[in-house]
Design a binder for these strands. Sequence first.
DNA 1: TATAAAGGTGAATCCGCAC
DNA 2: AGTGCGGATTCACCTTTAT
Lengths: 285, 285
Amino acid sequence: MNNIDVLPLNMILNEDCLVGMKKIPDNSIDLIIADPPYNLSKGGEWKWDNSVKLDGMGGNWNKAKEDWDDFSFDSYFEFTNAWLKEAKRILKSTGSMWIFGTYHNMGIINVICQKLNIEIINEVIWYKRNAFPNLSGRRLTASHETILWCNKGGKKREYYFNYEFSKNGDFSSDNLKAPGKQMRTVWDMSNNKSREELLYGKHPTQKPIKILERLIKLSSKEGDVMLTPFAGSGSECVAAKVNSRNYIGFEIEKEYYDIAIERLENALPNSNQITFLDNVNMLED
Amino acid sequence: MNNIDVLPLNMILNEDCLVGMKKIPDNSIDLIIADPPYNLSKGGEWKWDNSVKLDGMGGNWNKAKEDWDDFSFDSYFEFTNAWLKEAKRILKSTGSMWIFGTYHNMGIINVICQKLNIEIINEVIWYKRNAFPNLSGRRLTASHETILWCNKGGKKREYYFNYEFSKNGDFSSDNLKAPGKQMRTVWDMSNNKSREELLYGKHPTQKPIKILERLIKLSSKEGDVMLTPFAGSGSECVAAKVNSRNYIGFEIEKEYYDIAIERLENALPNSNQITFLDNVNMLED
DNA sequence: TATAAAGGTGAATCCGCAC
DNA sequence: AGTGCGGATTCACCTTTAT
């Protein structure tokens, strides 16, 4: 996409992320934060197809896994491949992408990033100190999520990294971050939510604003454009607005879209407002 | 493999893990601990083949990743698929498998486990408090490894789990383990090695005995048979011997094989020796 | 009024039992 | 042998009571 295109900035659109991302020019986004679904509702379009043979990938696959959530493993591959390809296309070479997941879907995301030549900078582990206990006594208490930090890939690395913030920022509530020392790949952060977040907290995987702020500050500058393909109830956009980044979001579920719109109306950007634009059009670089 | 077969127990064999595992009867191993290589030496058999099209896996792959260590991404898929298929075959339905890796190879391992219907019980994060600092200032300090805990899969879950140990065992050096509380998926453990381990410490990914002991105690009983497909300098076997588990190891590199043999000669099993057999043959169940 | 202790509530998953 | 229901399980968080 090389023609000059326009797109509403600082808005969430109530549409599919693929439809939305196709409207975005190449190399135009500074930051992508993605929390892709892996628990799609029953009756969705993702169906397991036992006839699909994965001959190219090692040849000798066993038979299909039967109960992979409500949709198929292979279809999830295709879904992930589709949105990551678009994500790579629209990302600037100076930009970053952060992807949330668990072991259920992160293997697929990881493999497709490597196949698409999206470079993984770090795999970050979010340790949730207040994780919900395991009640069965048959396994360990699930208490972390994975966040993959990537850039566009290519010969030279140009992504932005705020090393100073990562080293000397205020992370006093993180017991694994030593003050003045380099930030590590394991982050200790409880899953608590502020009153504002609880008020709009309907989405099952809603992330705390404070972890999104950390991602934003580590890898972008004020005035940059953040895009979130699966906006949910809008936490990424709120974090962007509060931190004077511009944002674009897509959310296909009307219920969450409505919540996100209301949240964003009530969210106040912080004092540095020079770089934040409101509902204007974005021109390609 | 249903004929009664014999195999030397409590030995490491100087051969390829696939060759070795093929000698093991179906459903005969209680515990597998695997630390698969992902940095194979140059000139090995793993070569990138640009002509391989991965049409079954989402269809539209970009061109091959050029610099995936010294061998090809797709070949690593085949390699992983091959040994994991054997591992699943020889594992008892009551058994467990633990696989070490990082984001470079864990995505592939994860995906193949799911394709082979090997059930992932937990993804464990080993946080290395004493990780080596990052010198570039361009990324976060890599400070964790991933350990996938799996069972054989199938309709009913029969794997052994020592819940009592996981809850009330002595983990006082682990700052993330609250005494008397359930064990979680993030473990805080430094990468220090004892004098014994340092003495034989030539292998680049040698694991500390104490993390291997944790795996062994969580998921096996005295007298059980542990198998390690990539034995390296023999840490898994030493941990098994010390904890009165029987062991089988394979190591193709003569240098490491020799170290492992010497280590095991000097390793002393602990006092409960009733269940430990020395260099005997194993009959199929 | 602040802090501490004590007590009640609720979440997801596994497993056994009845049919 | 498959289904469906109910009981058991843990611990973070909130509310209530005590110091």
